[in-house]
Simulated scan of single mutants.
Amino acid sequence: MSKDTFLAQIVTVKSMNISVNHRPSARSYAVLSIGAAVMTIALKFGAYSLTGSVGLLSDAFESIVNLVAAIGAFWALSYAAKPPDEKHSFGHSKAEYFSSALEGFLILVAAGSIAVAAVDRFFHPQPIEQAGLGLVLALLATAINGGVSWILLQASRQLRSITLRADAYHLLTDVWTSVGVVLGIGLVSVTGWFVLDPIVALLVAANIVWTGCKLLGETGFGLLDGAIPDDEQKAIALIMSEYKTQGIQFHALRTRVAGSRSFVSFHVLVPGAWTVQRGHDVCEIIEQAIALALPGTNVTTHLEPSEDPISWNDEKLN
C-alpha cells in the first residue's frame, strides 16, 4: 500500500467521522424508548382495568420494567459518551453494562411478580370482562413497542451500542409476550376456560426469565473483557494477510469489547534493517485500515525487529 493510498484512507476516515457526528446520538433513542414505555404502561394498565386479565397485568408489569430500563439506558449512554480523562484513559464506554445488568435484574423481579399473581389466579380463576376493548388497547401498545424495537435495533447496529441492542431485544420480547397474552384472552373468550389466562401469564413469566438471564450473560461477557466477534477478527486477519507477503509478521493479537467501543492491539514485526520511519508508516497504514474496516475501534501496535529472538518471547497470550 502506497503513501498516497494511506493519505487517501485518512481523508476517508475523517469524512466518516463527520457523517457519524451528524447521526442522532444513542441518548436520543433512549428518550424515544422512555416515551414508548410511558405510553404502553398507560395502555396496558387500561386494558387490565377493563378486562381483569392477569395476563394483561403481567404484560403491564413488564412495561414498567421497560420504563426503568430505558431510564437506566439514558443514564448509561450519557455517562458512556464522556471523553477519556486522567482516571479513565480508555473512556467510559463500559458504563453501558450497568444498564444491561439493571435491565436483566429488573426482568427477573418482574417475572417473579407475574408468577405470584398467576399462581393465585390459577387457583382462583375469574371471568374476563370487556375483552374486545381491552384487546384493542393491548394491540395498540404492542404496535408501539414493535415500531420502537425496530428503530432501536437499527440504531444499535449503526452506533454499535449494546445498551440499545439490549433495549431493542427486550421490547421485541415484550411484543411476542403481548401477542401471547392477546391469544390467551381470545381463547378464554371463545372457550370459557378461565384457567388459560393464568397459564399464559406463567408462560410469559418463563419467557421473561429467559430474556433476563440472557441479558445478564451478555453483561458478564462484556465486563470480563470478551473478545470482539469472530467476523471482526476475520476482517483483521484479512488485512494482516495483505502485508505478510511483504515480509511483515504479526503476533500477540489481543481484542476486547467495551460497550460501543472495541480495542485491538498487536505486535508488528518488520526487518531490522528498516528505518524507524518506514516501520512507523507501515503501522499507521495498518491501524487506519483496521479503523476503516471496524469503525469505533481503537487500534494499538507495537513495532519490533523480526530477527531479534526477544521479539518472539511474547508471541503467546500470558
Rank of each mutant, 00 (worst) to 15 (best):
Y29K: 02
Q288V: 10
L203T: 10
K234N: 07
Q9G: 07
G55V: 06
G180Y: 06
L196M: 11
P83G: 08
E307V: 13
K44Q: 09
P305E: 10
L317I: 14
T297Y: 02
A289M: 10
K87M: 15
G296P: 04
E232P: 05
I185T: 01
S149N: 05
A205S: 14
G72V: 08
P305T: 10
A80F: 02
R23A: 12
A143K: 02
P309L: 13
R23F: 11
T300A: 11
P83S: 14
A115C: 11
A141G: 13
V148Y: 00
D230H: 12
T275I: 08
Q154V: 07
F45E: 01
I236N: 03
S156K: 05
T163V: 11
S149L: 05
A69R: 01
G147S: 08
A36L: 03
L216K: 08
C213P: 00
W312L: 11
L224H: 02
A273M: 12
G220S: 13
G134V: 11
T245K: 12
V20C: 09
F123L: 14
N318V: 15
T245L: 03
W150A: 12
V65F: 05
L187T: 04
R157Y: 10
V264E: 06
A69T: 05
Q233W: 04
A252N: 14
A30D: 03
W150V: 09
P229N: 07
V136P: 04
I239K: 02
I290Y: 03
I239S: 00
V136Q: 07
E304R: 08
R157V: 05
N313F: 15
L108K: 08
A111D: 09
A70R: 00
N207Q: 06
R254L: 15
L152R: 04
N66R: 00
A201L: 07
D314H: 15
L223P: 05
F90D: 11
G55Y: 02
S306M: 13
D85T: 13
D85Y: 12
D308G: 07
V282H: 03
Q126D: 11
P24S: 13
W193Q: 09
V209A: 06
V54P: 00
